[in-house]
């Protein structure tokens, strides 16, 4: 899997599409190839199962984690840290934004629009067609438009992350691919990655295998 050339990678998507797993894995890949890496947890929607919970694992890889104030403390206060502004100063760092789900989560991103427009960034839109309310072309395009409006940023690349967790098969991913390809044609944005568990990705046809983004799963319930 090739980390993109952009300085700032922003992961947006439908609620529960897998943004956090992708953002963490993308950060790990960037750090592994030697980039100075920062991950910004911008999720003001989820009370748990969030990037900040994996702070120790990320820091072990040399990745700096910037979290909302009070994230993971049990305080349910959507307050963003002023530290976020530092990522626009340190221009030698690769920065990954993990944004909260849906248009509501993307609102937090809008605040930084004046900074982003001076930057080299990509906005990835993560799609899981096995999620309710994002299972067809029109619902997904509607959500992309709402997220663009709230974040004031245009989606630049699509990611097919279609899955049903531990029961995922290649059929889920390929059903997703068919829909994501249609969306890609319609809104004229490329598909950057097809992501999933390594054993599922093995089933990808050769012609699209270069887009494979194998995932190591970090968000698990305590018994798994």
């Amino acid at each position: 899997m090739n980390v993109g050339p952009e300085r700032i990678a922003i992961f947006t998507g439908h609620f529960g599409s897998g943004k956090t797993e992708l953002a963490i894995n993308y950060s790990m890949a960037a750090a592994a190839r030697g980039d100075k890496t920062v991950i910004v947890d911008l999720d003001i929607v989820n009370p748990f199962f969030r990037t900040t919970e994996k702070k120790d694992v990320l820091e072990e890889q040399g990745i700096k984690v910037i979290s909302p104030n009070f994230a993971g403390t049990g305080l349910d206060i959507p307050s963003l840290s002023a530290q976020i502004y530092s990522v626009f100063q340190k221009r030698d760092h690769k920065v990954i934004f993990d944004v909260g789900g849906d248009d509501i989560g993307a609102t937090a991103l809008g605040t930084f629009y004046p900074y982003f427009k001076e930057e080299d960034y990509r906005v990835y839109y993560v799609i899981n067609v096995r999620r309710p309310l994002s299972s067809n072309e029109q619902d997904i395009i509607d959500m992309i438009e709402s997220i663009q409006a709230n974040s004031r940023l245009g989606v630049s690349h699509l990611i097919n992350n279609s899955n049903i967790s531990y029961e995922t098969t290649i059929c889920d991913l390929l059903d997703g691919q068919a829909i994501v390809e249609k969306i890609s044609m319609k809104i004229n944005r490329p598909i950057a990655y097809i992501s999933g568990m390594p054993e599922v990705l093995k089933g990808l046809p050769v012609e699209i295998r270069t887009k494979a983004f194998p995932l190591n799963i970090f968000m698990r319930p305590p018994w798994a």
Binding site: G16, R130, R131, P132, S135, I164, S165
Partner: peptide, 15 residues
Amino acid sequence: MTKVLMKGNEAIAEA
């Protein structure tokens, strides 16, 4: 019917 991936809370509401 094909399976979908859901949060517990969403599944309660849809059910």
